[in-house]
């Protein structure tokens, strides 16, 4: 097990304390792609900030490769390098004069050699699909929002984390930007074998990418499993105000009307094929029926 959470509670100390996490147990294996969903305020952001030691749990332990990350023997800086966290609206954290310098911030803090830093910056820019030569000397503040977002993500990728956590990375991007980011995530997961945790409000994206879905409600994980399993629980999701992916919703409704379709496909194209095959079968069945 790569990361383990044992009975985590987290309370924000204010005048009236807010219990953000209330007894979370969770294990994350290397190579998983976890989709984290839940209503706003359910504790998703709090949970992921615990994973790299930005927040300390009020109760419970977080183990990374079997070691408690908040104990003395573990260097938090090391954990933060290995568990990369991309915050919501990460472009608001850009600060350097040039794109290259900003991306180099992380590797520099990790005390890497000059050439290695340079290499990482190139690689990271390449990963997010921006050309090194034409972007490296530009000011990050004169780029479009989508480009800034990608630079910010590159800043985390340059650390070469083993686990990449993204807190609603698609928020505010246009469809093309979202698609590119999704492709990047898929590439990181499949080809570079990164462990990924994705927080998103878009069920479609979670359903298509995640190998496991966690559903949070009021500080607890109330449902988890493969996307097909989780999205089968329409009633429970509805109880906590979450929708099904549009595709699943349509397939389920068709099934209720008597069309024999599978409801565990999430890509639009697959769903189209599924419906077409089902329709074909049905019409064949009708034709062969003697009236």
């Amino acid at each position: 097990m790569l990361i383990e959470l044992e009975n985590i509670r987290h309370i924000y100390q204010l005048d009236d304390p807010v219990v953000a996490l209330d007894g979370v147990d969770l294990g994350i294996e290397r190579g998983e792609f976890i989709g984290l969903i839940g209503h706003t305020g359910s504790g998703k952001s709090t949970l992921v900030q615990l994973l790299n030691g930005l927040l300390k749990p009020s109760e419970g332990r977080i183990l990374f490769e079997g070691k408690d990350i908040n104990s003395q023997e573990v260097e938090l800086k090391e954990i933060r390098r290995r568990v990369g966290l991309v915050f919501q609206y990460p472009e608001h954290q850009l600060f350097e004069e040039t794109v290259a310098k900003d991306i180099a911030f992380g590797p520099k803090n990790a005390d890497l050699a000059e050439e290695e830093i340079d290499k990482r910056v190139r690689e990271a820019l390449d990963l997010v699909g921006l050309d090194f030569e034409s972007f490296k000397d530009r000011s990050p503040f004169n780029l479009s929002g989508g480009q800034q977002r990608r630079i910010a993500i590159a800043g985390v990728l340059a650390l070469k984390p083993e686990v990449l956590i993204l807190d609603e990375p698609m928020a505010g991007l246009d469809p093309a930007g979202r698609r590119k980011l999704l492709e990047l995530l898929r590439h990181l997961h499949r080809d570079i074998e990164m462990t990924i945790i994705l927080i998103s409000h878009r069920m479609e994206e979670i359903a298509r990418l995640a190998s496991r879905v966690l559903v949070m409600d009021r500080g607890k994980i109330i449902l988890e499993g493969r996307p097909a399993e989780v999205f089968n629980e329409r009633e429970r999701l509805k109880d906590i105000d979450l929708d099904l992916p549009v595709v699943t919703d349509i397939l389920k409704k068709l099934k209720e009307k008597g069309l024999k379709v599978r409801t565990d496909v999430f890509a639009l194209e697959d769903a189209r094929d599924e419906i077409l095959t089902a329709l074909e079968k049905q019409s064949q069945f009708r034709e062969s029926r003697p009236c």
């Binding site: 900030q49 915050f87 911030f105």
Partner: peptide
């Protein structure tokens, strides 16, 4: 607070 956390996530001290 938020920015500080984000920079810490990149190893800032």
């Amino acid at each position: 607070d938020k920015i500080m956390k984000a920079q810490k996530a990149r190893g800032a001290d």
